[in-house]
Nucleic acid binder design. Structure first.
Length: 300
DNA sequence: GCAATTTGACCTCG
DNA sequence: CGAGGTCAAATTGC
């Protein structure tokens, strides 16, 4: 964070310099100064994103946290409140094009076991909602526990890879979203059926920043299982399974804990290169799998 | 053969 | 009625 602040300081200094010599500057040098300022703040912004991901993860663990609460954030507010305000508005407040979600929100609501009901082809062809059978239940917005985080995409390699969070997910849908350049992908826990795990997530790139994913988590994992030795089949772009930690968490704090910890353990510092965020050095068998006793050996 | 992904159709909600 | 969310058959890859 200190690094980010020094960058911001540097940017502010450049702004001051520009301000003081605004009259005497030629258009060329004005353009150069603006470029430099833009670059500086862009750099700070990128680094801040990483910090935010960590903060959001911590927020999730603590459940409740003021938007601006840490010491360094408060310092930053004093330094450049407008900048922080703008930043939080953009990346911490209404981040979606629809402006409906905050970066971190926790809504504790009843999470029913299985949100939907599977219909056979014949049942489906029988007509929607008609017949005596119970209509298919569908979860809508604001139902269940919901958390949204922004996660930087890989800057090198396959940037299409969705952010990893140490859980295994199965993609079950993808949709073009209105006013969004990028489709939204829908994932549910691989163990949804096996363990009746209601966890789901939606992954979408930000319109104005293709290198950032907005990941919306719904429901919490009841499976208490991490990756189940995914093999090559899981190496498809949308299902890459990686993990960065071999530490066991007897209590499932959710994906954010793992992600935050992964970042902290893996980074050794915040850098512009985001490759460190989701390194995949551990073979799948390093994933810590533990099961509920009643599950037996049902998983593969 | 199995599991994961793709994708068009279907369903629900606002 | 349109947008978003989900289902499940078809497809793909190991």
């Amino acid at each position: 964070m200190e690094e980010v602040m020094s960058i911001i300081f540097h940017g502010l200094k450049l702004v001051d310099e520009l301000k003081s010599s605004l009259q005497e500057k030629s258009p060329e040098s004005l353009s150069t100064s603006l470029d430099e300022i833009t670059k500086t703040f862009d750099d700070a912004k990128e680094r801040l994103k990483i910090v935010l991901v960590i903060r959001n993860s911590e927020t999730t663990m603590n459940q409740v946290k003021p938007v601006i609460s840490s010491c360094s954030d408060r310092m930053l507010m004093q330094i450049e409140p407008d900048l922080m305000h703008e930043y939080w508005l953009r990346y911490g407040g209404s981040t979606s094009s629809h402006g409906t979600e905050a970066v971190t929100q926790r809504q504790l609501m009843a999470v029913d076991g299985d949100g939907g009901r599977n219909l056979t082809a014949t049942e489906r062809s029988g007509g929607s909602g008609s017949g005596s059978s119970t209509p298919r239940q569908r979860r809508r917005k604001n139902e269940g526990e919901e958390q949204t985080v922004l996660v930087p995409a890989l800057r090198s390699g396959n940037t299409d890879l969705p952010p990893d969070d140490s859980h295994t997910w199965r993609k079950y849908g993808q949709k073009e979203i209105l006013h969004s350049k990028f489709p939204r992908a829908y994932y549910r826990c691989t163990h949804q059926k096996l363990y009746n795990c209601p966890a789901k997530k939606q992954v979408q790139r930000l319109n104005d920043d293709p290198f950032t994913f907005r990941v919306n988590y719904r429901g919490s994992h009841t499976c208490h299982i991490y990756s189940t030795a995914p093999t090559a089949s899981a190496a498809a772009p949308t299902a890459l399974i990686t993990t960065t930690t071999t530490t066991s968490h007897p209590v499932d704090y959710g994906p954010f804990f793992d992600m935050a910890e992964a970042m902290m353990l893996g980074s050794g510092g915040i850098g512009a290169n985001m490759d460190f965020i989701f390194p995949c050095n551990d073979p799948p068998h390093h994933h810590h799998c533990y099961r509920r006793s009643e599950d037996g050996d049902g998983d593969k």
